[in-house]
């Protein structure tokens, strides 16, 4: 096979950069390619000019494949453009059209350059089509990638937002779980809890599952493993807020909660926690709460005081 004749795309990009930009802008502004309400003309012009400049640079190598490092900058530009357009509300199709709309001006110049050389023209039309198609498809890919990144970030945010570990009392942590627990989320949450136990030196952790609609075998097992791990570290867990249906499921699933302290409500769990850490909770009697602003009837002051224990840190 004889060597393919050299493509003249690079040469044309070099020669007619200014004209191509003018034609391309006209093409986009008259066509339906750019929703002008979303983007200023000057911004579009900057993007087009930059695209042309980088395309000219990159096409000095080969225009038939885009694997070389000379294409990196152009790809980065497309990634940036796609990102900013996605934020501006462009659809993936509209962004891809930005690239595809360059075909017409480029084809016109090619036709001019080749004149009657049909073979040369069809070769370079093919090259140009392939090149711009690939670049256009790339924007779609970036679009999708951008969406995936957003989803991953939101998932992570959601996971952190929805699982706060609260230090409700000196030495007592509470983890109110809300929403559906999948195996992965439960694992992250539980690791967080164990880390907080170490950080705060809390010997008791209350896991409240009032807000959890469904507990399946895997989630129940993760709960049990967390309780076991906490015990190995020297802390006790209490599980509270087990609703009747969940109690039934747990038994049906054959999950053994026999070694775990369970309480119906968070407040029951808290009073156990107080007992274990040596606090007693009592109502402040009238005689004790002599305060200057006076006590009204029915106002209850809860006083937590430590019984006996003086060795606490």
């Amino acid at each position: 096979m004889t060597a393919a004749p050299k493509s003249r795309i690079a040469e044309i990009l070099n020669h007619y950069e200014g004209d191509l930009l003018k034609d391309w802008m006209k093409q986009q502004l008259t066509g339906k390619a750019v929703p002008t309400d979303l983007m200023k003309e000057s911004e579009l012009r900057d993007q087009c000019a930059e695209f042309l400049r980088l395309l000219r640079e990159a096409s000095r190598g080969s225009v038939t494949d885009m694997v070389g490092s000379e294409w990196t900058e152009l790809k980065n530009l497309l990634s940036d453009i796609t990102g900013s357009r996605a934020r501006q509300g462009f659809t993936p199709a509209e962004t891809a059209t930005f690239v595809f709309s360059f075909k017409q001006p480029l084809f016109d110049r090619l036709r001019q350059a080749y004149g009657k050389d049909a073979d040369g023209l069809s070769m370079d039309l093919w090259n140009a089509t392939t090149l711009l198609d690939n670049l256009g498809l790339l924007t779609t890919e970036y679009h999708q990638k951008g969406r995936e990144d957003v989803i991953v970030r939101q998932q992570r945010d959601l996971m952190e937002l929805s699982t706060p570990v609260v230090n409700i009392w000196d030495g007592v942590l509470a983890l109110p779980l809300i929403g559906t627990l999948d195996s992965e989320r439960t694992q992250v949450v539980m690791q967080n809890l164990l880390q907080r136990i170490v950080d705060t030196g809390s010997a008791i952790a209350i896991i409240d599952i009032t807000g959890v609609p469904i507990v399946d075998t895997l989630v129940a097992q993760h709960l049990l493993k967390t309780v076991a791990a906490a015990r190995l570290m020297g802390a006790d867990c209490i599980i509270s807020g087990i609703r009747p249906q969940i109690a039934q499921t747990i038994v049906h699933l054959g999950v053994d909660l026999k070694d775990v302290v369970t309480k119906a409500t968070l407040s029951d769990a808290l009073s156990i926690a107080f007992q274990r850490t040596g606090y007693t909770v009592r109502k402040g009697g009238r005689s004790e709460s002599v305060s200057s602003n006076g006590t009204e009837d029915g106002v209850q002051t809860k006083v937590a005081s430590r019984a006996g224990g003086t060795q606490h840190l």
């Binding site: 539980m190 690791q191 164990l194 880390q195 136990i197 170490v198 493993k225 076991a228 791990a229 906490a230 190995l232 570290m233």
Partner: peptide, 9 residues
């Protein structure tokens, strides 16, 4: 450590 405890379990 938590990671050690999780692994042991």
């Amino acid at each position: 450590q938590p990671a050690v405890a999780i692994t042991l379990v």
